[in-house]
Amino acid sequence: QGDIVVALYPYDGIHPDDLSFKKGEKMKVLEEHGEWWKAKSLLTKKEGFIPSNYVAKLN
């Protein structure tokens, strides 16, 4: 089961498979690959890669 993270900063995706998000948006982490994680937005239901240093895990 994936962790839920919250965006600390907004992110505008650079690549087509990036997931753009707004500050405060919550996402479910699907896979962790070093600095880039695959996640699904709980708001938009879209999936893509996010920079892990832009988010914090919720406990």
Rank of each mutant, 00 (worst) to 15 (best):
Q1M: 12
Q1N: 12
G2V: 10
G2T: 10
G2L: 10
D3P: 10
D3Y: 15
D3G: 11
D3K: 14
I4Q: 04
V5T: 02
V6W: 06
V6L: 06
V6Q: 06
A7N: 00
L8H: 04
L8S: 03
Y9N: 05
Y9V: 07
Y9M: 11
P10M: 08
Y11A: 01
Y11G: 00
Y11S: 03
D12E: 14
I14N: 09
I14C: 14
H15L: 09
H15M: 08
P16E: 10
P16S: 09
D17R: 14
D17S: 12
D17T: 12
D17M: 11
D18A: 11
L19G: 00
L19M: 06
S20H: 06
S20E: 05
S20C: 08
S20M: 06
S20P: 08
F21E: 00
F21S: 01
K22R: 12
K22A: 10
K23R: 11
K23P: 06
G24Y: 06
E25L: 01
E25D: 07
E25A: 04
K26D: 02
K28I: 15
V29A: 03
V29I: 15
L30R: 03
E31T: 08
E31N: 07
E31L: 08
E31V: 08
E32I: 15
E32T: 13
E32L: 14
H33S: 10
G34K: 06
W36P: 04
W37M: 15
W37I: 13
W37F: 15
K38V: 11
K38S: 05
K38N: 05
K38Q: 07
A39R: 00
A39D: 00
A39Y: 02
A39K: 01
K40Y: 12
L42K: 03
L42G: 01
L42R: 03
L42W: 04
L43F: 09
L43H: 09
T44D: 04
T44L: 03
K45T: 10
K45M: 14
K45G: 15
K45W: 14
K45H: 15
E47G: 04
E47K: 08
G48F: 01
F49N: 11
F49A: 05
F49P: 01
I50R: 01
I50Y: 01
P51M: 05
P51E: 03
S52P: 12
S52T: 07
S52W: 09
S52R: 14
N53W: 15
N53M: 10
N53G: 11
N53R: 14
Y54A: 08
Y54G: 03
V55T: 05
V55L: 04
A56V: 15
K57L: 11
K57S: 09
K57P: 12
L58W: 12
L58R: 05
L58Y: 11
L58S: 07
N59W: 10
